[in-house]
């Protein structure tokens, strides 16, 4: 698989948050502020890169019967490492992620990528897949965080913009509402993108046919 395809899949075509709707728990709970989105995104990206790489490395060693427990063990290790690193170097982010940090273990994106990608692909592309899936997750979470923070608390990344705010958007109900809007907008953009891609393909196809006809 080409690096460009892996990147496009992670960031857009197979965006874990907006297309696959995985890892919904932190998406809904932590997007009250943009910074939380960045923090969670970074943590998940880090875990994804390493768990994907290691699982891919061991894909011929682990018997398929016990693969899920083995994956979970590996993922839990990297989540613990992430937690230690954050505690040491970025204690404020670690504190704001709170309980959701250990819960990365059961984030469906990670076990999902392990099963769907890393268990079948070589190490390098697995690590790349981890990187871009993580970035796609971070991208979606940060956007949602910015949206909710602006509307809900009138600030961006903690910088106050104005006094006007709609409390609804930082409440749990606002999280669900925001997520619904984001998925809807994404699916509109995505289908427009597909249509454009199809048209281009058809055009190319006709052109090729025309060329053949001429010959």
């Amino acid at each position: 698989m080409k690096a460009k395809d892996i990147a496009l899949d992670g960031l857009f075509r197979q965006n874990p948050t907006l297309k696959l709707v995985l890892g919904t728990c932190p998406t809904l709970a932590l997007t009250t502020a943009a910074m939380n989105g960045v923090g969670m995104g970074l943590a998940v990206t880090f875990v994804l890169i390493f768990s994907n790489a290691i699982i891919s490395l061991l894909r011929n060693v682990i018997p398929s019967k016990v693969r899920i427990p083995a994956y979970i063990l590996i993922i839990a290790t990297f989540v613990t490492i992430t937690r230690m690193v954050l505690n040491k170097f970025l204690p404020s982010i670690s504190a704001s992620l709170g309980t959701y940090l250990p819960l990365i273990v059961v984030n469906c994106i990670i076990i999902g990528r392990a099963e769907a990608f890393a268990s079948k692909n070589p190490v390098l592309s697995s690590a790349l897949d981890g990187l871009f899936m993580g970035l796609g997750f971070m991208f979606a979470l940060t956007l949602m965080g910015i949206f909710r923070e602006i509307l809900g608390s009138g600030s961006v990344f903690g910088v106050k913009l104005w006094d006007f705010s709609i409390g609804f958007f930082v409440q749990p109900a606002g999280a669900l509402f925001t997520y619904a809007i984001f998925i809807a907008v994404y699916s509109l953009v995505y289908s427009a993108f597909l249509r454009a891609a199809n048209e281009r393909k058809n055009k190319d196809g006709l052109a090729v046919k025309g060329a053949r006809g001429n010959a």
Binding site: L58, V61, I62, P63, K65, V66, P69, A70, L73, I74
Partner: peptide
């Protein structure tokens, strides 16, 4: 299976 898990 058991050995692999234990080693990991």
């Amino acid at each position: 299976c058991v050995t692999t898990l234990a080693v990991i």
